[in-house]
Design a protein around this nucleic acid. Structure first.
Length: 223
DNA sequence: GTCCAGGGCCTAC
DNA sequence: GTAGGCCATGGA
């Protein structure tokens, strides 16, 4: 049985190795929202190119997206992959925001966590990871984000199993850690950094991993 | 050329 | 209810 102390010690090891990560890489809450959609199932670099393209056309804002046709958005975000779907998803969020909150993100984010989460999960194209990323990194709510790196890393640490649901993973962390948005924020950021830099699906760079001693490592079957 | 990258929806069994 | 296909770019 994994304890909260063990999970915190993983975080401490990552923090000592990498320092605070200062994630998410965006200047404003609405850029976090846009980035969370564009980063779905794609390397961050490709999502970032799409963000830059939107910025160049002065469309890196929810009011601008709200007023732009998806057909005009899609070509700009090609680099983020699945660009037609993601253009729809950007619009879906903007429409919700303007229809129900008068275009005011702070109004949406002033809802309590459960209500805001439910509202966003009802949007087509918004699953738990995207919604939780928005709630944690844009709204500052205490919700732990689970992503592919989280699954890969904690499975290799033999603390979780491959058949766990998103909710099981989230409960695993949230039932054992203090409900601290700053902790959840930096913990997830550390996981992303570790995953990106070291814990690759193939060819993991384990000799540079601060968790090497605790990890079953790449000799185990993937992921 | 092949594989992989921070999801989510839809369909078929 | 769940596995598997679909979406469809860019870099290593």
């Amino acid at each position: 049985m994994t304890t909260g102390a063990q999970i915190l010690s993983i975080y401490q090891a990552l923090l000592s190795a990498f320092g605070h990560r200062r994630w998410w890489p965006a200047d404003t809450a609405e850029e976090v929202v846009i980035g969370a959609i564009l980063a779905q199932n794609v390397a961050w670099e490709n999502a970032h190119k799409a963000i830059e393209a939107l910025n160049q056309q002065r469309l890196l804002s929810l009011p601008a997206i709200h007023q732009t046709d998806t057909a005009d958005l899609a070509p700009l975000i090609r680099s983020s992959r699945f660009f037609n779907q993601k253009a729809e998803r950007l619009k879906n969020f903007a429409i919700l925001l303007f229809d129900q909150f008068d275009g005011d993100l702070t109004a949406l984010f002033s809802l309590d966590l459960a209500t805001a989460r439910k509202s966003l999960l009802n949007l087509k194209g918004f699953g738990p990871e995207t919604v939780d990323s928005i709630l944690l990194y844009a709204a500052g709510k205490p919700i732990f984000v689970i992503d592919a790196y989280t699954r890969r890393i904690f499975e290799r640490l033999k603390m979780t199993a491959s058949d766990w649901s998103y909710q099981s993973y989230q409960d695993f962390f949230m039932s054992r850690l203090p409900r601290d948005p700053a902790l959840f924020n930096d913990y997830h950021a550390q996981i992303v950094y570790l995953g990106n830099q070291i814990c690759k699906k193939k060819r993991p760079l384990c000799e540079r991993c601060p968790l090497e001693n605790q990890c079953s490592g790449p000799m185990e079957s993937l992921p």
